[in-house]
Amino acid sequence: MLLAGTAFFSGCQAPEPVTLKVIAAGSLLYPFAEAEQEFEAGHPGVDVQVEGHGSIQVIRQVTDLHRTADVLAVADESLVPDLMYRPMEGSDRNFTDGYIPFATNEMVIVYTGKSRYHEEITSENWPDILGRPEVRVGFSNPMLDAAGYRALMVLQLAEEEYGDPELFENVISDHFPSTVRVRETGGTTVISLPEIIRPSDDHVIIRDGSIYLISLLEAGGIDYAIEYRSVAEAMNLSYISLPPSINLGSGEYAEQYRKVTVELGFPRFSTLGRERVGRPIVYAMTIPANAPHPGLAREFIDYVANESESGRPGWPAPLARGVSG
């Protein structure tokens, strides 16, 4: 009893475990699951908890739903200034005033040994194969997932790259009941989507997120999906690489990417409009101003950034100099 009392007052108890709350975009869940284990191994007493959402929802957990988090990680760096460089309610401090761009990615076409024409497809002939009526092509819902509107941008940019002005029509818009519209305005191609994105036949299949698309692909429910390269690698899927001028993975082509805009059917979030402009894919991490453990959060961010720089399999690619912005 006396010993127990002495131990209590002398502060010899095991320290309280610290929970580091990390909210991350879906395409980061695989690398962050690895980072969680490794960071915990190097930080006894720290429990890293990673929670996944679409990138906009990642930020909204803090800005609109008033939850606390130590680290936010998103698949589109522009979301941080757009949604977080504003004062928190009842405070003169912004939700955050900076972020670390740490990785990039690129869009690829994934497939399996069950996919129709998988022995024939190459990085040259994929527009022809994806346009064949019997082929089923999948992408994420652009309302919910950046990979979804990025898939549409890739297909539109491919028209110029492959000299095929009907590519987008053949693969996408011909398979919707006149509800997906494409128009030219001031040198930009605008893809306008309806409120409900419902294909009129089985050529195009849309699911809410990558995990459902990949599951459908593996089950043979679709032949090809337009996905991030890191997801393809993490899931050991075969994929066709696309030219840098259309894959959204190269800072050198930022001007080219900007020529395509996707206009969503409705503003799912009042804090962000309906337009998504083509940009190089840049992942970013930030520490909210009210993070409970900012020092530890900084260590976690540094760990992830350093690991990312080494180019690990299944992780988004290291950020080449000049890609951000």
């Binding site: 909204r60 609109d64 739903l65 409120e195 409900i196 419902r198 699911r207 809410d208 459902y212 059917g265 409705f266 503003p267 799912r268 979030f269 009042s270 804090t271």
Partner: peptide, 23 residues
């Protein structure tokens, strides 16, 4: 058009109100 004070909005069409077209 169904919305909430946190700024979230979702849209259902009349087919969906009949329970159709959900995965």
């Amino acid at each position: 058009w169904v919305s909430a004070p946190d700024g979230y909005l979702w849209v259902f069409d009349d087919d969906q109100l009949d329970g159709k077209d959900f995965v």
